[in-house]
């Protein structure tokens, strides 16, 4: 009897402890998601006042060339953005040892991540400037006439991918570094006794035991990349004037399209439908990743 009472008290305490988070989560995440789902079936003007229109918004989505284009761009960005993980592993491995000034290097790599994305994008915009940018001036020294990186449809998306990788590498690296440091030193000592060199140790011990961390990083990266917005918003410009960039068709992302519909052209029901599609894609891709992890993730 007494034991049961204890348990009930314990449960009560547990609920009390998670209540603030659960409440916040419900109020600020779950409820808006449900509301947005509802609004995606309505026509919702600039000042509220929605009207039920059934699946109209979704029918429109299917034949919207901008959504198709935005999806292609977003997937390309997400796919290429994953390159930041192997790069981050290499840097993490290089910084995972005792050497002078290791803290300085770690800070330098992490710096882009703690810098405001808008500031990052502004600086890259200057670097990429076709006539006055540092990159093209450097290229001119070796006789190469560089393009207008962010205004040329052939280069714009890749230019943004480079910024994306550059700014996420520090975050990925820190997580992976933590993963590496949690690998017990005994394994390496034993491998060294058996005559395994550093490369062999890295491939046979570090990589497999790092895979759960790499998996986490990849899930987070994919979700983040699919929601790419701020970088492009600053690089390409905001609202309607972004469309004067000839490379805009290659830069437009799903969230940017959502922003334009929700906040620029006052078409919020349709915007809600766009994010519901994005939500669905994120759920599916994350589920796929969890399925695939069985093939490559080793839990020690």
């Amino acid at each position: 009897m007494a034991r049961r009472k204890d348990r009930a008290t314990e449960a009560l305490w547990a609920y009390a402890f998670i209540a603030p988070t659960a409440l916040g989560l419900g109020l600020f995440y779950l409820w808006p998601v449900l509301q947005t789902a509802y609004f995606s079936f309505t026509e919702w003007g600039a000042f509220g006042g929605h009207e039920w229109t059934g699946v109209d918004n979704y029918v429109r989505l299917v034949s919207d060339p901008e959504l198709g284009r935005a999806l292609v761009n977003t997937f390309t960005f997400t796919g290429l953005g994953l390159l930041s993980i192997p790069l981050a592993i290499v840097f993490a491995a290089l910084l995972n040892r005792k050497m002078r000034g290791v803290g300085v290097y770690r800070t330098l790599f992490f710096l882009p991540y703690v810098t405001m994305p808008v500031a990052v994008a502004m600086v890259w915009r200057w670097l990429y400037n076709g006539d006055y940018g540092l990159i093209n001036n450097a290229l001119a020294l070796v006789g190469v006439d560089g393009p207008n990186w962010i205004a040329d449809p052939d280069t714009a998306l890749y230019a943004v991918v480079v910024i994306g990788i550059w700014s996420s590498i520090g975050y990925n690296m820190i997580i992976l570094l933590a993963g590496m440091q949690s690998i017990p030193a005994d394994y390496y000592e034993a491998a060294a006794l058996d005559g395994a060199g550093p490369v062999r140790q890295f491939v046979r011990i570090t990589l497999p035991l790092l895979s759960p961390t790499a998996f986490f990083v990849s899930v987070i990266s994919v979700i983040g990349s699919l929601q790419l917005f701020d970088l492009v918003f600053v690089i390409a410009g905001s609202g309607a004037s972004a469309r004067a960039n000839p490379a805009f068709p290659r830069l437009q992302t799903v969230v940017q399209l959502f922003y334009d519909r929700a906040f620029v052209t006052n078409d919020r029901g349709y915007a809600a439908a766009i994010v519901m599609v994005l939500l669905l894609i994120i759920v599916i891709l994350t589920a796929v990743q969890f399925r695939l992890q069985r093939r490559w993730v080793h839990y020690a």
């Binding site: 979700i223 983040g224 790419l228």
Partner: peptide
């Protein structure tokens, strides 16, 4: 870049709720 964009969306959600509350 990832989670900060995520944050922005969350903020947007928060704003929506705030609007609802004010209403």
């Amino acid at each position: 870049m990832g989670s900060r964009i995520f944050l922005n969306l969350k903020l947007f959600g928060t704003a929506l709720v705030a609007v609802g509350l004010t209403l």
